[in-house]
Amino acid sequence: MINGSKVLDHPIRWAMVGGGKGSQIGYIHRSAALRDHSFQLAAGAFDIVPERGIAFGRELGVAPDRCYPDYQTMFAAEAGRPDGIEAVSIATPNGTHYAICKAALEAGLHVVCEKPLCFTSAQAEELVSLAKAKNKVVGVTYGYSGHQMIQQARQMIRHGDLGEIRVINMSFAFGGYNVKVEDTVPAARWRFDPEKAGPSFALGDVGTHPLFIIEAMIPDLEIDSLMCTKRAFVEGRQLEDNAFVIMNLKGSTSVQAGAQVYCWASSINCGARHDHKIRIVGSRASLEWDDERPNQMTYEIEGEPVRVLERGAGYLYPEARVEDRIGGGHAEGLFEAWANLYRRFAIAMSGAGQEEYGDFWYPSVESGAQGVKWIEKCVESADHGACWVSFN
Rank of each mutant, 00 (worst) to 15 (best):
F233L: 13
N248I: 04
N269T: 12
R231E: 15
M227D: 05
I280C: 03
A243C: 03
N242I: 14
D275P: 09
A243M: 10
R237L: 13
F233P: 06
T229V: 05
R273C: 00
A257V: 06
G236F: 12
G282I: 05
I280P: 01
G258Q: 06
A243D: 05
F244V: 04
A243G: 03
T253D: 14
R231N: 07
I246A: 14
A232L: 06
I278C: 08
F233V: 14
M227C: 15
Q238A: 14
V261N: 04
L249N: 06
T229Q: 12
H274T: 14
N248E: 11
A259F: 04
T229P: 00
I268A: 05
H274R: 13
G271R: 05
D275S: 15
S267K: 04
S254N: 11
H276W: 01
T253L: 06
V234H: 06
D275M: 13
I280H: 02
A257H: 06
A257D: 15
G236P: 05
K250Q: 11
A232P: 03
V261S: 07
Q260E: 13
H274G: 00
A243I: 02
C263R: 01
R279W: 12
R279G: 03
T229F: 13
I268G: 00
L239M: 07
C270K: 11
Q260Y: 08
V281M: 15
S254A: 14
Q260N: 11
H276N: 01
A265C: 13
D241A: 02
R231A: 13
I268E: 01
N242G: 08
H276E: 14
S252I: 01
D275W: 14
K277V: 13
M247A: 10
C228R: 01
W264P: 00
Q238N: 07
M247E: 03
G258M: 02
N248W: 02
K230L: 12
V255D: 01
R273F: 08
Q256A: 15
K277Q: 11
A257M: 04
V281A: 12
I278Y: 04
E240V: 09
G282E: 07
F233R: 12
Q238V: 04
F244R: 09
K230Q: 11
H276G: 09
V255F: 03
A232M: 08
L249R: 02
N248G: 08
N242D: 14
F233T: 14
V261T: 03
G236N: 14
N242K: 09
A232F: 09
E240S: 09
I280G: 01
E235G: 03
I280L: 11
Q260W: 03
A272E: 15
F244E: 07
A257K: 05
V245F: 06
